[in-house]
Design a protein around this nucleic acid. Structure first.
Length: 324
DNA sequence: GGTAGACCTGGACGC
DNA sequence: GCGTCCAGGTCTACC
């Protein structure tokens, strides 16, 4: 029997809705277990990898009830964790689930964009570490979703310890040829390797990037300077850091602008109009943009907490793209 | 300042 | 089956 611990959450927090809120929830080592409506994931802790299951009591129903909101989360590990490891696991889960984002911030978002007040959407999941967010973003650039799924599966299976996401040190030690041949990252091999070395050596200090006091512009410049990080990736990492002012616009945004918002013109013009369209939402712009996209996906695939990781990898983008 | 072409993988399509 | 084409951001070279 493994260790158990609880996690307090903000009063609006609903695990299935707030965890299944961004595509990374479908990427390994993350797994949303649909029958039990629980989050399962391996964390690489001080004493080695541990498989955690996180549930929200009362949140297991797939119906639309919001009764479980604010109920503390229960985490169970598959082995005994030291006190230090429990602290570590709490910090990682808190970052991933954004449990330290106050309910008041979400209420403010709903005042700015009332469309999401009813569902309560507003929180976005991310990775337990800044490093994983950066690498996952690189694996999502210039590929279709199924390739991103494969890259993350292989990185965890080939390089990560016990199926966990690789640490900077482990990834820095992996040969680029291994990343290319076995992890299927293609030409990203060198960039991923370089990023891992920057983190492992301390040249990139996650604390500086995570610090709310770091100015937006300085953050942007530092991100753009990283290998494999261009304007889209930098803007996406900014939102993962909780800075929602900038929109990471990609080919999906163009599709959305044309199909849903009825925009016309060249791709370049649509990009510009998208930025203008969401600018009034200010520091919540990305949330407004993202939940519009998410609502479109859910209109085709049902609620995100019913999406199968294994089939979504191949069918998801195809189904969405067929609407063009 | 902007932009053409290369980068790699996997899915779609035509034969 | 097998070959060809294409989607998808970043980077370099060049204007």
């Amino acid at each position: 029997v493994g260790s158990r611990f609880t996690l307090a959450v903000p009063d609006d927090y609903l695990l299935r809705r707030d965890y299944c809120s961004y595509g990374y929830f479908l990427l390994e080592p993350n797994l949303w277990h649909i029958p039990s409506q629980t989050l399962r994931r391996v964390l690489d802790l001080d004493g080695g990898p541990a498989r955690l299951t996180v549930a929200q009591p009362g949140g297991g129903s797939v119906s639309g009830r919001l009764a479980a909101r604010g109920t503390p989360l229960r985490a169970v590990a598959d082995r005994v964790l030291s006190r230090r490891e429990v602290v570590q696991a709490r910090l990682l889960l808190t970052r991933m689930l954004r449990l330290d984002e106050p309910a008041e911030t979400i209420r403010e978002f709903h005042r700015v964009d009332p469309r999401w007040k009813r569902s309560g959407r507003g929180r976005l999941m991310r990775s337990p570490t800044f490093f994983e967010d950066v690498i996952k973003t690189v694996t999502s650039c210039n590929v279709t979703w199924p390739s991103t799924v494969v890259m993350n599966r292989r990185l965890c299976g080939v390089v990560g310890r016990g199926g966990a996401f690789p640490t900077p040190h482990r990834l820095a030690r992996a040969r680029t040829a291994t990343l290319r041949a076995r992890c299927r990252v293609g030409y990203r091999d060198r960039r991923i390797s370089d990023l891992a070395r920057l983190f492992a050596s301390g040249a990139v200090d996650p604390e500086w990037f995570e610090d709310p006091a770091t100015p937006d512009e300085a953050l942007w410049d530092a991100l753009i300077a990283l290998p494999g990080i261009g304007p889209y990736a930098a803007a996406n990492i900014m939102q993962l850091l909780g800075r929602y002012h900038r929109l990471p616009l990609d080919s999906e945004s163009i599709r959305h602008g044309k199909a849903i918002l009825g925009m016309t013109g060249s791709d370049r013009q649509i990009m510009k109009r998208m930025h203008e369209h969401f600018a009034p939402f200010g520091r919540h712009a990305f949330r407004s943009y993202w939940f519009e996209l998410w609502e479109f996906y859910e209109s085709r695939k049902g609620p995100s907490w019913t999406w199968e990781r294994e089939t979504t990898g191949t069918s998801f983008t195809a189904a969405v793209l067929n609407t063009r």
